[in-house]
């Protein structure tokens, strides 16, 4: 009886701590998407720019973002201000640092996905819009981009699912997201349960992501 009461207390405490982690993971995920997706579009424009300097700078940016570990980028963004400029960093910078590193990293991947979609568009679509008198911006946002979205949706889904799991890397700078907390509780209680709970959380989260994206894909299936 006593043992089970302690267990219930422990579980309650664990659930409470984990739920705080869930909120942090969710904000990290949403904010990253919010910044990375538009930023990625900007980067893809740079990558396709006619200007050689802009194109090569962007190319270098993408190659660094893709060519080095996300965890390393996380540490550089978090500790960089102190190690490079001696600026004291407070724990409140942890979460913003995670959002920044995830955003600039994912922007590079999104940029290449956008580029693949944009470059796969037939020239005829641009020509038809041009002859009809659409401006450059109108052509892109009314004619090209909506079709690009449909083409790249499967790749974007992939990327979003990876992001859900990658948020766990924020444990490297002690952001109190699901994985960090699970790890803390698991060590404190020498229990496997927090890891299992975290695993179930990530799985369900991604199940939901896949479900929503499938809906979106189906919604765009009215033409091909």
């Amino acid at each position: 009886m006593i043992v089970s009461a302690i267990d219930v207390d422990k579980l309650m405490l664990m659930a409470q701590q984990m739920s705080q982690g869930v909120a942090t993971t969710l904000s990290l995920f949403i904010l990253t998407l919010l910044f990375a997706m538009p930023l990625g579009l900007l980067v893809s424009f740079g990558r396709m720019s006619k200007n050689v300097i802009v194109r090569n700078v962007t190319k270098f940016y993408i190659s660094v973002m893709r060519g080095t570990p996300l965890m390393l980028q996380l540490l550089v963004v978090y500790f960089g201000p102190y190690l490079l400029f001696g600026i004291t960093i407070s724990p409140s910078y942890r979460f913003p640092a995670a959002v920044i590193s995830f955003s600039i990293n994912y922007a590079a991947y999104f940029a290449e996905i956008y580029r693949s979609g944009i470059e796969s568009m037939p020239a005829g679509q641009y020509e038809a819009a041009n002859v009809l008198g659409y401006g450059k911006g109108q052509t892109f946002f009314k004619i090209i981009f909506p079709q690009v979205v449909k083409r790249i949706l499967p790749s974007v889904t992939n990327e979003i699912i990876t992001l859900v799991k990658d948020t766990s890397l924020a444990f490297a700078i002690a952001v109190l997201e699901v994985f960090t907390i699970a790890k803390q509780i698991a060590s404190a209680q020498t229990s496997m349960v927090p890891y299992v709970a975290a695993g179930i959380f990530y799985y369900l989260f991604n199940y939901l992501v896949a479900f929503i994206m499938e809906r979106v894909e189906r919604k765009l299936n009215y033409y091909h």
């Binding site: 037939p122 005829g124 679509q125 020509e127 038809a128 009809l132 109108q138 009314k142 079709q147």
Partner: peptide, 23 residues
Amino acid sequence: FQNFNLFPHYSVLKNIMDAPVTV
């Protein structure tokens, strides 16, 4: 055009109406 180049994401009506309205 030889290969039409209609806007596939627009209905027939919107293909015809969009440029006169926006442009």
